[in-house]
């Protein structure tokens, strides 16, 4: 009887998923497959839509991939992406953890955490494009807020200081881009971690307190293990976001300063739309980036998934036990 009913309604399951499936096939699946195909063709030139597979024009099938992987610019972009991400992520997770520890501390009961949370989170909703250009003018040369500050400080000590062109040197550019990224995301990460800590049962903390654990011990031995899951989640999303970094470096520096801030995503866009219209090479580069992201996130998701399932199994067992007791 029950089964019959379920069969009756099954068609609505299909019906209600149709819009998603159609939109997914049209706007994601088809373009992904098309991108993969273009990677193996000779498609280039503005406004050109005709293409041939590379072997039919007498070239190696993987020529585009080879071109990308051996290109110095791509290698630099790939390295830049990682450097910028690491310089952004380490302080981001560090400060987020520090503020989490402070704002959730049961003994000091810091006031105004609500306000600080709202303030720290704010840059996250501001358009990244705006932030990039804003920091670009603030780090301007010869006149910009930061040059003015440093010159002012130098003046106080009786030293005359030449204005420094932050945006013309390799490392300052990378570090500033990483900082803007940090500036935009540390509040977001902090809010996530705090929510995780609030979700921990207070009894665990009470037990730790009774056992005589101090603040530092409680944080490292109780809090962090309890929010590992969320930290992994933050890591995965930040890594995928970081490998796709585009807005901030593109508008902060573009290809200036000898490609100091060029990321893989910028490289892909520049290949296709930066004047050379090498769609095939751009497609090959995005397939490479895609494979890297899939491998990395599969590894991280595997770590996440395993623990989730273990937890679910435990829960199910407990439920079963409880149900038996109830009977």
């Amino acid at each position: 009887m029950r089964n019959k009913k379920l069969v009756n309604y099954a068609k609505y399951g299909y019906l209600f998923s149709i819009p998603f499936i159609v939109a997914f096939c049209l706007f994601t699946l088809y373009p992904v497959i098309y991108t993969f195909i273009i990677g193996f063709t000779d498609l280039k030139g503005a406004g050109n839509t005709e293409w041939h597979f590379l072997p039919t024009v007498g070239k190696n099938l993987f020529a585009n991939f080879k071109d990308v992987l051996t290109s110095g610019t791509f290698q630099k972009a790939f390295k830049n992406t990682w450097i910028i991400w690491i310089f952004n992520f380490i302080p981001q997770i560090g400060f987020a953890l520090l503020f989490t520890a402070w704002f959730t501390d049961r003994r000091s009961k810091v006031k105004g955490t609500g306000l600080f949370k709202i303030l720290f989170y704010m840059p996250n909703i501001i358009t990244a494009a705006t932030l990039a250009i804003l920091f670009n003018v603030l780090f301007g040369y010869p006149k910009g807020a930061f040059n003015d500050i440093f010159s002012g400080v130098a003046k106080v000590f009786g030293v005359t200081r030449e204005a420094y062109n932050f945006n013309a040197h390799e490392w300052p550019v990378k570090i500033i881009i990483a900082f803007v990224q940090f500036f935009q995301w540390y509040g977001h990460t902090m809010v996530n971690l705090i929510a995780g800590v609030i979700g921990i049962s207070p009894e665990i903390f009470e037990a730790a307190e009774i056992d005589g654990a101090n603040r530092v011990q409680t944080f490292f031995k109780v809090t962090i293990p309890c929010i590992r899951q969320i930290m992994l989640f933050v890591l995965v999303t930040s890594l995928i976001g970081g490998l796709n970094m585009f807005d901030i470096p593109q508008l902060y520096i573009g290809t200036k300063a000898n490609n100091a801030g060029l990321t893989t995503n910028m490289y892909i866009r520049n290949q296709a739309f930066g004047g050379s219209y090498l769609y095939n090479r751009a497609a090959a580069a995005s397939v490479i980036l895609f494979i890297i992201i899939v491998i990395l996130s599969s590894i991280l998701f595997y770590i996440l998934r395993d623990r989730d399932e273990a937890k679910l199994k435990k829960l199910r067992k407990q439920e079963l036990k409880a149900a038996r007791k109830g009977l």
Partner: peptide, 28 residues
Amino acid sequence: YEWKFRDAFNGMIMAIMMIPGTVTMIGF
């Protein structure tokens, strides 16, 4: 609803969450 491909569909949604926008861009 319980339908035949429900679990497969659900699994697919989990899997495609990590497709980055870049890889659709050129084809799109």
